[in-house]
């Protein structure tokens, strides 16, 4: 066979991926960065400026929304992990055969409908004339209708719910690969449930937990629909600020700066998370 430096077959196979990366990921981001670094001085006339970034730090509403989004996303990620871990452990380690597949499928089914429909589902439950409110009145726990929507609690519930699958899948996969005899050995040598969980199961599941957390955190931070619908007008999610700048104010420069800041924030937090959990990115994503 001919061995040349230029392997046509390989490049043809790689081309969809390279095109995708270049055209849809790299180019828009470069453009976003360029737009964020300019200022309109006159119609159709632009100059280089850091003003958009200065604006972000000078206007408390912007950076407070930014910090609030980050904190709520971290909270939602932690809650997702806390809820998904027992579920995944139960599916991966306690069940066998058909029932295991059935339960796994049950975790998947909600994701067959669009996020919009699922969020409306939560609104039907939580609104003032909704199911939960009626239940509280019927049981006598409340005299008047209760509005459960449009607060941080509702946003968190919605975010956890819509991200659950992306935590459950990596967790079930890593827990599945844990040899049962390691767990048994942990008990056999005198370990309690707590010790076996802490010294054997969790260290093994760490890559899955971290990759699940990264996925969920990214999705949550960049989520627009759920915070807007469940949080209402005052939800103050950072993606809404970006939307406002681009669509309502036609201030593309400011919106781009916000976009770049959000990207930097998520990269920073993911990097910190990896450092704290002593995982490498390659290991977590494998």
């Amino acid at each position: 066979m001919r061995r040349s430096g230029f392997n046509l077959g390989l490049w043809l196979l790689l081309s969809p991926l390279l095109l995708w990366l270049l055209l849809l990921i790299l180019l828009p981001h470069v453009d976003l960065l360029l737009i964020s670094l300019r200022e309109r001085v006159a119609p159709r006339e632009y100059a280089f400026s850091l003003g958009n970034y200065r604006e972000f730090f000078q206007e408390p509403l912007y950076w407070r929304t930014f910090a609030r989004t980050a904190l709520l996303s971290i909270l939602a990620t932690a809650l997702t992990l806390l809820i998904a871990f027992p579920v995944s452990y139960y599916v991966a380690k306690m069940l066998r055969g058909r029932i295991k597949n059935a339960l796994f499928l049950l975790c998947l089914i909600p994701f067959w409908v669009s996020e919009l429909v699922r969020t409306y589902g939560w609104m039907i439950l939580l609104r003032e004339s909704g199911l939960v409110s009626n239940l509280l009145q019927w049981s006598g726990l409340s005299e008047t209708p209760v509005e459960l929507l449009y607060n941080d609690g509702a946003i968190t519930v919605g975010l956890v719910y819509s991200a659950m699958l992306f935590m459950v899948v990596p967790l079930i996969t890593t827990l599945d690969s844990l040899d049962d005899s390691l767990i048994e050995a942990g008990y056999d040598l005198g370990g309690s449930h707590w010790h076996v969980m802490w010294e054997i199961v969790i260290p093994h599941a760490m890559p899955g937990m971290v990759s699940g957390c990264i996925l969920v955190f990214m999705l949550t931070l960049g989520n627009y629909l759920t915070p807007t619908l469940l949080g209402g007008k005052d939800s103050l999610w950072f993606t809404e600020q970006i939307y406002t700048q681009f669509i309502t104010r036609f201030n593309w420069e400011q919106g781009s700066a916000f976009g770049i800041l959000l990207l930097m924030l998520s990269s920073l937090i993911v990097w910190l998370g990896l450092r704290l959990s002593r995982q490498s990115f390659a290991q977590v994503m494998s």
């Binding site: 005899s181 390691l182 048994e184 050995a185 008990y187 056999d188 040598l189 054997i200």
Partner: peptide, 17 residues
């Protein structure tokens, strides 16, 4: 329960942590 028995087991595939 297994963790309270005066018995220990060497597993088939050893199950070292």
């Amino acid at each position: 329960p297994p963790n309270r028995r005066p018995v220990n087991m060497v597993f088939q595939h050893l199950a070292l942590f």
